[in-house]
């Protein structure tokens, strides 16, 4: 009974306080700017409890943009392993979903899911801020339903 209450409270808190960290795995800046744009007056995601954090230790959600290049691969894994669980990975933009325009390049591995377990894919090139908000709301729903994060 008590355990159930605590679980429910924790899920409510996690849902309402997503601290995101953004990592560019080799993208073109397009999605990165749109993510930064989320913090600015027009889209202001702070009203949804979303804050941009500077260090992976404080973050709950890793927002990846861009296709994974060979050189960024290790950094991406390192950052993910530094995050305390429960943690989620969101692939923002078509490039980080599948590689998109950069498919077939020698220096590009492909989507983020080649390296990390991705919880949510947001298509778009670049994603509109509304699309990213929509994606993060979907992630909140998943958390509210109590789906465990993939490890």
């Amino acid at each position: 009974m008590l355990q159930k209450f605590i679980d429910k409270t924790y899920r409510w808190a996690q849902r309402n306080s997503l601290w995101v960290m953004h990592f560019n795995t080799g993208g073109c800046n397009g999605c990165d700017i749109e993510i930064l744009d989320l913090l600015t007056p027009r889209y202001d995601v702070e009203r949804l409890g979303i804050l941009a954090e500077a260090t992976p230790r404080h973050a709950d959600v890793l927002l990846c943009t861009g296709p994974v290049t060979h050189q960024a691969k290790d950094g991406l894994w390192q950052i993910y392993s530094q995050m305390p669980s429960p943690k989620w990975v969101v692939a923002v933009g078509s490039c980080s979903n599948t590689g998109a325009v950069f498919h077939g390049s020698d220096t590009v591995l492909g989507g983020v899911d080649k390296i990390l377990p991705v919880d949510l894919y947001i298509p778009g090139c670049p994603c509109r801020p509304e699309a990213i908000i929509d994606g993060l709301l979907k992630l909140r729903e998943r958390i509210a339903q109590g789906e465990p994060d993939q490890v």
Binding site: A91, N97, T98, G111, D113, V118, D119, L120, Y121, I122, P123, G124, R128, E130, A131, D134, G135, K138, R142
Partner: peptide, 12 residues
């Protein structure tokens, strides 16, 4: 129309 976010891109 906005393309909705999904949990599995490969099957989309």
């Amino acid at each position: 129309a906005l393309v909705a976010a999904t949990t599995d891109a490969r099957e989309l």
